[in-house]
Simulated scan of single mutants.
Amino acid sequence: MRLITLALAVLLLLIQYPLWLGKGGWLRVADLEQQVDAAHQKNDSLKSRNAKLDSEVRDLKDGTGAVEERARFELSMIKQNEIYVQILRKGQDMPGEGVTPAPPPPEKPKDARPH
C-alpha cells in the first residue's frame, strides 16, 4: 500500500511540473502578462507623444503662430518696430554680466608712404 501511495504522489508531482514551471505554466503566463502590460503602457505614452508631435507639425505647416513663437523663444528674434522688455527676478544676473567683453578690432596699419 505504501508503494502505491508513493507512486501516486510522484505521479502527481510529475503532472504538476508542467502546470507550474513548464512552457505554458502559470508562472510563465504571469510573467508574459506583466510584459504585455508594460508594452501597453509604453505604447500609450508613445501614442500621446506622437499625437503631440503631430499637432505641432500641423501647427507649423498651417499657422504662423508656432513659427513666430519658436523664433521668439529659441532664436530671440523680435518683430520690426517692436520693443523688447526683459524682466529679471531678484538675484538673477543681467544678460551679459560676468562675460568678458570682446577685444577691440585691431587698428589698420598706417601707410608709410607719403601722399
Rank of each mutant, 00 (worst) to 15 (best):
M1F: 10
R2H: 09
L3Y: 11
I4K: 04
T5V: 15
A7C: 07
L8I: 11
L12D: 08
L12S: 13
L12P: 00
L13M: 14
I15L: 13
I15T: 05
Q16G: 04
Y17W: 15
Y17S: 05
L19E: 11
L19W: 06
L19Q: 10
W20Y: 05
G22F: 01
K23N: 09
G24E: 09
G24T: 08
G25E: 02
G25L: 01
G25V: 01
W26Y: 09
V29E: 06
A30I: 14
A30Q: 04
D31C: 05
D31L: 10
L32R: 05
L32W: 03
L32A: 12
E33F: 00
Q35H: 10
Q35K: 07
D37R: 15
D37N: 12
D37W: 12
A39R: 04
H40P: 01
H40S: 14
H40T: 06
N43C: 06
S45N: 13
S45F: 07
L46N: 06
K47M: 15
R49K: 12
D54M: 07
D54F: 06
D54G: 09
D54T: 14
S55N: 13
S55E: 11
S55G: 08
S55W: 08
E56G: 02
E56T: 04
R58Q: 15
L60P: 01
D62I: 04
D62M: 09
G63H: 10
G63R: 14
G65E: 13
A66Q: 02
E69F: 14
R70S: 05
A71N: 02
A71W: 00
A71P: 01
R72W: 00
R72S: 00
E74R: 06
M77C: 02
K79C: 05
K79E: 06
Q80N: 11
N81L: 12
E82M: 04
I83L: 13
Y84P: 00
Y84S: 11
V85S: 08
V85W: 01
Q86N: 08
I87V: 13
L88F: 08
L88Y: 15
L88Q: 05
R89P: 01
R89N: 07
K90W: 02
G91A: 08
G91R: 05
Q92C: 03
D93F: 00
D93I: 03
D93E: 11
M94Y: 08
M94H: 06
P95F: 03
P95I: 11
P95K: 03
G96A: 11
G96Y: 03
E97S: 11
T100D: 07
A102Q: 10
P105L: 11
P106G: 08
P106V: 00
E107V: 05
E107P: 04
E107Y: 05
E107N: 10
K108M: 05
K108L: 08
K110E: 09
D111V: 13
A112I: 05
A112L: 13
A112V: 06
A112E: 07
R113V: 12
P114N: 15
P114W: 10
P114Q: 14
H115C: 12
H115I: 13
